[in-house]
Design a protein around this nucleic acid. Structure first.
Lengths: 206, 206
DNA sequence: GTGCGGGTCGCATGAACATGCGATTCGGAG
DNA sequence: CTCCGAATCGCATGTTCATGCGACCCGCAC
């Protein structure tokens, strides 16, 4: 039996979802709230297995802040965001905050039940466009023509190392490190260590 | 009709997959290879809709290098990795290289067909554990207690800016930037700009 | 009201870094 | 063969940064 809780401000949608889930085989849904504050204590005292939460909520906390808050307060249940929004930023913010799944509101009821099951057994349910968005965020841009050695040096820099530490790690002199870094700066079109590190990490060049 | 190609070195598995896919309603599978070199020309001349590729391949290129190579050569079809390996590093390397999906070899035939359909309509098919791995990689660690202003400064540093540029951007003096950065270093337990940037970007503190 | 942390600013010193101009060796492309 | 890029090293100069030691104001908690 998978125990589900809801946080959704639209009473119609909330009641509807509650009914659908509670009547489904293998599910129970006895907790439904319209905002995170109200939900907090109840969810922490009697934690569900999975929480289904809207992203746009009234009150001080939206859904994303909500996940963050609940997790900080010790919640260990899985949270799935359920929303009309498909903007990349919201998706990534939600996942960063700790949501394990992300569904759009046009998801048919049986898909929602599938998602609840999947979240409960440790998966990460999301609609196909969202999944693609997430996967695409990993895609590396065309290799920026750094030489093997330069990539090694850059990787060391991304560990936060100084010239001296890089030199020691690669068994070369600081002057050689300097030379490599010069080339890296030219190729990446930057002119400081932290700028290079920032670019390397953001564009996954390492 | 979804045209599928295979790259898989085990002849039994390859032939078996080819049969399963080619006989399935709505699919054709007429291209199957045992290594990337061999496959390259054929796949570029007569591109399939989806490529299903093993990750451990004989020859110079493994599956991950293979995706990279094919994409660099102009391939635009979707690639799904099919493998026994579930190590995080391989999964992320594959997605970074440009694979859109990732299945483990114990995936039953009908799930493979689902995955092919999903990839074809722009999704990102992967097994549940993999999806969770991917989603978890986004999770932010507990906010390390940086103040609002410190986060702002850190964010500027992550743009690769110098003290002076940060000062200008935030309308404060360089000395104040210095003070904030001092606090940031203390809280993040680092002692250089690039180390702070590296930590901030890796742990998604911004 | 006495702290304490955040935010603002200042100065001074030594270390780390950026950059310019060298050099040698080696392998591969033309 | 000759040129070029990659990799190694050196030196010198000026800039940026790290850090230590101050200061003041504010709001909030105790």
């Amino acid at each position: 039996m998978i125990r589900v809780a809801l946080i959704e401000d639209d009473a119609d949608i909330r009641d509807n979802l509650m009914l659908i889930i509670d009547r489904a085989e293998g599910f129970s849904c006895r907790q439904a709230f319209s905002d995170v504050q109200e939900a907090g204590k109840s969810l922490l005292n009697d934690p569900p297995d999975v929480l289904l939460m809207d992203i746009t909520l009234p009150g001080k906390m939206n859904g994303i802040e909500g996940v963050e808050f609940l997790r900080a307060a010790g919640a260990t249940f899985e949270t799935i965001m359920l929303t009309v929004h498909q903007e990349e930023k919201l998706v990534f913010d939600a996942l960063c905050a700790g949501a394990c799944g992300y569904l759009t509101k046009n998801t048919p009821p049986n898909r929602i039940l599938d998602a609840l099951r999947e979240a409960h057994r440790g998966g990460a349910p999301m609609s196909t466009q969202i999944a693609r968005m997430v996967v695409d965020s990993f895609k590396r841009t065309p290799p920026p023509a750094l030489s093997e050695r330069e990539r090694e040096v850059l990787a060391e820099l991304c560990q936060g190392k100084s010239y001296k530490m890089v030199a020691d790690a690669l068994y070369i002199s600081q002057d050689t490190v300097r030379t490599h870094i010069r080339s890296i700066y030219r190729k990446l079109e930057v002119n400081s260590k932290s700028e290079a590190v920032a670019k390397a990490l953001k564009e996954r060049l390492i």
